[in-house]
């Protein structure tokens, strides 16, 4: 259940930086406030995600990156005490509009989690197709869909001969790409990734990053990461989140990745990306 709370008067710090152009947006949050119970954890977050871009969300632990990303596909409201105010515009429509079905939102905006989580009782093939079953969708050519999704996730060549093995028989990096394939199979327009590489070794990490770059040719990606090199390797844009004292977290600076890392406007951004705190 979601109780949409009206934003109370609140002096929210302005997000600095060059931002991103307003045109050709697939996804955007507008004046988003988020609560857990009575505690406001995010204040006034307005970020734009242009079509076929990769945006990295960075910031110290606990500043609300995961919380934010979960508001973008209505996963946040599944936590009992969760509340939010503001808007998330996806393809020109507010996803929190009462007429919108959250299931449709989650199918168009997929999510990959920190820990690879293939369904243990299902085979590789069943894992890829699980979204169809879970959302009661039909697809006439399942084999083609399996191959397409696994290829897009960069896993096809490694698993094409053992599609009937369980997902658990893969390495951690392969499992994560299986999870990406599973999300892709329901044809999302946006993929949200919450620290997708933090449980992986460097080799698997590079492999997933390459997948992300390939995906960004036809879809929009938002990725939370603690890895500054990773943000610079994959992201077109970067947003820096921060939580200070007991205030809610907010987006300090947002703009093209070269700006955030090369010549940030805010001193705190500069300190963070240069490893001076966090």
């Amino acid at each position: 259940m979601i109780t949409t709370v009206e934003a109370v008067p609140f002096v929210a710090p302005k997000t600095q930086g060059a931002g991103v152009p307003d045109q050709d947006l697939v996804l955007a949050s507008k004046n988003l406030y988020v609560w857990f119970g009575p505690r406001m954890v995010l204040a006034d977050v307005s970020l734009n995600f242009p079509k076929n871009s990769v945006t990295a969300l960075i910031g110290p632990s606990g500043c609300g990156k995961s919380t934010y990303i979960r508001t973008l596909n209505r996963m946040h409201e599944l936590i009992p005490s969760a509340a939010l105010a503001g808007q998330v515009i996806f393809e020109d429509k507010d996803i929190y509009d009462p007429t919108v079905n959250p299931v449709d939102v989650r199918l168009r905006i997929g999510m990959v989690f920190q820990k690879p989580n293939p369904f243990p009782a299902m085979t590789i093939k069943e894992n890829v197709l699980s979204g169809l079953k879970l959302a009661k969708l039909s697809n006439s050519n399942q084999n083609e869909l399996v191959e397409k999704s696994l290829s897009q996730a960069g896993l096809w060549n490694e698993v094409k001969d053992r599609l009937d093995n369980t997902g658990g028989s893969l390495s951690g990096g392969q499992q994560q790409r299986l999870c990406i394939a599973r999300s892709l199979a329901v044809d999302p327009h946006v993929l949200l990734m919450d620290e997708p590489c933090s449980a992986l070794d460097p080799g698997s990490t590079l492999r997933v990053e390459q997948t992300i770059r390939e995906l960004s040719e036809f879809m929009t990606v938002v990725i939370v990461t603690h890895n500054m090199q990773q943000a610079q390797r994959v992201a077109t844009y970067t947003a820096f989140f921060l939580l200070e004292d007991n205030n809610p977290g907010y987006a300090v600076e947002h703009g093209p990745t070269q700006h955030i890392f090369g010549n940030p406007i805010d001193q705190r951004t500069s300190d963070y990306v240069n490893g001076r705190f966090g």
Binding site: L78, L107, F119, G131
Partner: peptide, 15 residues
């Protein structure tokens, strides 16, 4: 995390 995965794929309670 499995329940999350299911929900993120559009799975409601019964599925």
């Amino acid at each position: 995390e499995l329940i999350n995965a299911s929900q993120a794929l559009g799975g409601t309670l019964w599925p």
